[in-house]
């Protein structure tokens, strides 16, 4: 009996060590999640500028279909390319986890791209942390894709462009097309080397605030407005599509806006229409790049899809009004157009 004791002790000790070490690996917080770690991470590069918005013209960024939209074939061939970083932004919980494009990291739109407290986009500091944890460098090609027609991938692309990421692209057709083609998916979250991405100050040329839109409505600034919601929302027949919780107490649209539902920019398989078709589509409502254009929707996310088309694919001077209808329609004293005449609370 006694002779077995040392062996038993060794085995027990080994098991305990194994448990402790594996347990600790899991417990250790990722740097980005703890403020101290984040600071350490941010130290080598310059601090991002948070408050003042830079009013400079967009830097020489790649504009044109082939520079901002990647095909599924291209991405499949570039999965091992260290210069390419892939981000999935899907809405349905568990979609990324149950299978994503190999090497893609997960960004959650409602916590990683927005500030959960201030109804604003995520701060430059926070985006920089997240981007570095995702292995993004200043010279990376960032490719975004997601479920729900790439809506939130486009929102992510807008946030990345806003904070100065030079090369941001969208996977044509998004997750649905990649899946439909039966392409490879991975389950495990990738481990990546931290990147050195540095967020710049927010680029004011890409974002419109309520006051900017008001100037357009009042004729002080010459710019077009595109409402990308459904015709029923635009006309004021309904406040919001069924099932959506975030509402405005007024129905209708911002005066002078034209209605081009976002889906008109894509083919049946969710891929973008050709540059020629897109140019014609928006020219038919008077948006041809000769003057600035501002796009909006209900909460700001879907409109980023159209913003991407106008700004990145067509190269127009386009801004996203992310406050959108839930801000404008709820704001006291701003004018609206309400062709259907629907009034909140009236029978």
């Amino acid at each position: 009996m006694n002779s077995h004791k040392p062996q038993l002790l060794v085995i027990v000790a080994a098991l305990i060590t194994l448990l402790i070490t594996t347990g600790c690996v899991n417990v250790q917080p990722v740097a980005a999640e703890s403020p101290a770690g984040a600071q350490a991470n941010a130290a080598p590069a310059a601090d991002p500028v948070d408050a003042p918005e830079v009013n400079a013209v967009t830097e020489a960024s790649p504009v044109g279909f082939e520079n901002v939209v990647v095909s599924t074939e291209w991405l499949a061939e570039n999965l091992d390319n260290p210069a390419v970083r892939v981000i999935e932004v899907s809405v349905i919980p568990g979609v990324y986890e149950r299978g994503h494009i190999p090497g893609a990291v997960n960004f959650v739109w409602h916590t990683d791209f927005v500030d959960t407290i201030s109804r604003d986009i995520v701060s430059a500091t926070r985006l920089q942390e997240l981007a570095r944890d995702a292995g993004i460098n200043d010279d990376s090609t960032v490719v975004l894709y997601g479920d729900n027609n790439n809506w939130f991938a486009a929102w992510g692309a807008w946030v990345f462009k806003l904070y100065g990421a030079p090369d941001v692209r969208i996977l044509d057709g998004g997750r649905a097309k990649w899946e439909a083609e039966g392409r490879e998916l991975a389950v495990a979250a990738p481990t990546v080397e931290p990147g050195d991405f540095t967020a710049s100050g927010a680029n004011a040329n890409l974002r419109a605030h309520l006051a900017d839109v008001r100037q357009i409505v009042e004729g002080d600034v010459d710019a077009a407005l595109i409402d990308i919601r459904s015709p029923a929302e635009f006309e004021g027949t309904i406040f919001a599509p069924e099932g959506f919780q975030e509402l405005a107490v007024r129905a209708g649209h911002i005066p002078t806006a034209v209605n081009v539902p976002w889906a008109q920019a894509v083919n049946e398989d969710g891929s973008f229409k050709s540059v020629e078709e897109l140019r014609e589509l928006y020219a038919s409502v008077g948006v041809d790049g000769s003057r600035p254009v501002v796009v909006y929707c209900r909460i700001g996310e879907r409109a980023s899809h159209t913003w991407f088309v106008l700004s990145q694919i067509l190269g127009y001077d386009a801004k996203l009004y992310d406050g959108s209808w839930t801000e404008w329609g709820n704001t006291v004293g701003v004018p609206i157009e309400n062709p259907a005449g629907t009034i909140w609370g009236a029978q």
Binding site: P29, V30, E33, P93, Y96, E97, A189
Partner: peptide, 16 residues
């Protein structure tokens, strides 16, 4: 869980 969300202490819950 280890594959879905390698860092259990990140302050999130695993999806669904």
């Amino acid at each position: 869980f280890g594959a879905f969300m390698p860092n259990a202490g990140a302050g999130r819950l695993p999806p669904a």
